[in-house]
Nucleic acid binder design. Structure first.
Lengths: 234, 234
DNA sequence: CAGCTCATGTAAAAGCCCTTCACATGAGCT
DNA sequence: AGCTCATGTGAAGGGCTTTTACATGAGCTG
């Protein structure tokens, strides 16, 4: 499309930045045809090198995929951390931003998201990948800990880790079942965001949070507003 | 001309039941190597026919996969319906059985589950597939409707459809993130069942269900008193 | 600048898979 | 017995993956 990285004009025998070019090419191809449809050879072709060249930078096709997944988790962590913003201005509203950011990432970066969760590569494929994934989850976990600290007394409350897992599971479930309109995802009579928000509200109420009257429609009670970057288009 | 096949003794030029044999072979291969790792040629080999033979029964590889997914949904529906058992002996306990059955299916039938949700085939790939998927979801939906009818007044309650989607999403999220130990799923300091049960409990409480002590109970499953998260992790 | 070295890229080849096509077989029906 | 058509076969075209031997030239050394 618009990104050509050959700042040096022509490319001779050596590419100069092939590893990066391959990652970008693969990202584009995955977005286009899914993580299963993408081929190593196609990435090489897109980058303008022979089919054997990628092997100088990646052990094999899965290694490339794992690299993309890792980068995805790193970007995911940043996105989530930015949305959480250390719980400002208050825990609840930051929490809802977090949820929206989760879905927004799945929608806006389908290539990363599918490489991360649907490519079939083991989560512990590499120590770096595993660590990146755990750092991303860490953001959710921190949010859960803040929520735990706020849960009213008198209601049995689960460990923060468990809450974090609940949040992750529901977000991931919604994202993977209904999140991406791109492929052939299931139709929904509501937006994924509304679905998640309603679910989160009920869950929080179950933890004893006074969520006031908040039907599944639309919420404005303690939610200031969605942040700058994150107002999902469409 | 002298190949060992089923009980009917020899298998001549014609297999006799190739379509079924291919489905079974594919199921085994998917369980073994994932939906991405399975190959059409391998299924043919396993069934003892040439690589071209499967094309007499399936348009292509994806068609076979879609057939398996469809059967998976049919079996899934039966499993869920059996667990739900029309809400006997009471809605809450039947509901928890439903959740456990969901996870059990994902664990016991990883080949079906991955064909259904992770094979990359569009949900509306065929009308039959779509219908089968919706019938399976229908079981969850019916359960949600029963729950809706029981929700105490005074608490805003979402439409049954939305509740059903919440339940499905969380179950699916847990199943796909942590559900199968077979491949390289993420480790969890608790069982997926406990995780789901705890999440469901909190969700139900958020809907106004009294989940602590309940006077009339015949089955302990209906209302866990100590709470599933009381049990030690690890 | 000459020369050396090694990372990086290439062509070719082996092996496997998908899919199609012309042809073979034989089960079921007349 | 004869016919017919669904079902299976072998071969072939086109891709993809990965390895191997070889080519190139960027960067260091002196």
């Amino acid at each position: 499309m618009s990104w050509h990285k050959d700042r040096r004009g022509e490319r001779g025998y050596h590419h100069g930045n092939l590893k990066e070019a391959l990652l970008q090419a693969a990202l584009g191809l995955i977005a286009e045809k899914g993580p299963a449809g993408f081929t190593f050879a196609d990435a090489a072709r897109t980058a303008g090198v022979s089919a054997a060249a990628p092997y100088r930078h990646f052990r094999d096709r899965d290694d490339l995929l794992a690299n993309i997944a890792q980068r995805g988790f790193e970007q995911f962590e940043q996105t989530l951390a930015k949305a959480w913003d250390e719980g400002r201005p208050n825990t609840i509203s930051a929490f809802e931003r977090l949820g929206k950011a989760y879905l927004a990432f799945a929608r806006n970066e389908p290539a990363f998201y599918s490489a991360m969760f649907e490519s079939g590569i083991p989560a512990d494929s590499s120590p770096e990948l595993l660590a990146a994934g755990e750092r991303a989850f860490g953001v959710i976990r921190v949010a859960a800990e803040r929520l735990t600290a706020l849960t009213p007394p008198g209601v049995p409350r689960p460990p923060a880790l468990m809450m974090a897992l609940h949040i992750w599971s529901m977000s991931h479930g919604i994202a993977s079942l209904f999140g991406r309109g791109d492929a052939a995802r299931r139709k929904l009579p509501m937006t994924p965001e509304d679905l998640l928000e309603a679910g989160a509200l009920i869950y929080l109420r179950g933890l004893g949070f006074p969520t006031d009257q908040k039907p599944p429609e639309n919420d404005k009670a303690s939610v200031p507003k969605s942040g700058p970057w994150g107002a999902a288009p469409k």
